[in-house]
């Protein structure tokens, strides 16, 4: 019998650090289909994810976790719903240094919430940079309710990536607990 596979989706605006995030914990080389960027407005970096990033963590013989990164550019958002099907939860990556992307991050978050009512956390990436916004300011800017976890992160640092994944899994566990009024 084939192993049970579950997936977590890593989403967020263009250049928010999704590929690096998956790369930091994946046991396989991230299957990333990066291509040269053509749109002038998106030339912050030379390549971006045009299809999806795919990483894998084997738990044991019976269980595997897939990490899917969504395409970074808006024009590929038709992939989002397809990717969100059956996901355990999702992570919204936000570049703490680029407030101009906060609105888009909020929009992506709401779109994914509409696709599936699964737990999610928000990762404030690039918190190690000098111009990074404070978490409290980001929370207000992103209009996150207090119960939503907003976690500091550096996508290239495995420990912070692990912490974000763990917090999402804790949220998923909490969601499974019986609700008491």
């Amino acid at each position: 019998m084939s192993a049970q596979t579950v997936k977590i989706v890593v989403t967020g605006p263009f250049n928010s650090g999704k590929t690096e995030f998956i790369r930091s914990v994946s046991e396989i080389d991230v299957v990333s289909t990066e291509r040269k960027i053509t749109a002038e407005a998106e030339k912050v970096k030379s390549t971006t994810t045009v299809a999806l990033d795919f990483g894998r963590i084997t738990v044991d013989d019976d269980l595997m976790l897939y990490l899917f990164g969504t395409p970074g550019q808006k024009r590929f958002d038709f992939m989002w719903e397809i990717l969100s099907e059956g996901m355990l939860g999702f992570i919204v990556m936000v570049d703490s240094n680029r407030p101009e992307t906060f609105r888009e991050a909020r929009s992506i978050l709401e779109t994914f919430r509409a696709y599936a009512p699964t737990p999610y956390v928000v990762a404030a990436n690039k918190q190690d940079m000098p111009d990074a916004w404070d978490l409290e300011d980001m929370r207000v800017a992103l209009r996150l309710e207090p119960k939503i976890k907003l976690l500091p992160c550096t996508a290239t640092n495995r420990d912070t990536v692990k912490a974000v994944l763990l917090e999402l899994l804790y949220s998923i566990l909490e969601e499974m607990e019986p609700q008491h009024d």
Binding site: Q4, T5, V6, K7, V25, I57, T58, V59, D60, L63, L65, Y66, F78, E81, I82, L83, E85, G86, M87, L88, K162, L165, L166, L169, Y170, I172, L173, M176
Partner: peptide, 28 residues
């Protein structure tokens, strides 16, 4: 639109769900 290729969580058995997530936590 293409259907998802990953199996969703087992929705019926809550103990199985919790066990699965705990295994993921231990692995991470």
């Amino acid at each position: 639109a293409l259907p998802g290729t990953v199996k969703p969580m087992p929705v019926q058995d809550h103990d199985e769900q919790r066990s699965l997530v705990n295994r993921l936590i231990d692995r991470i």
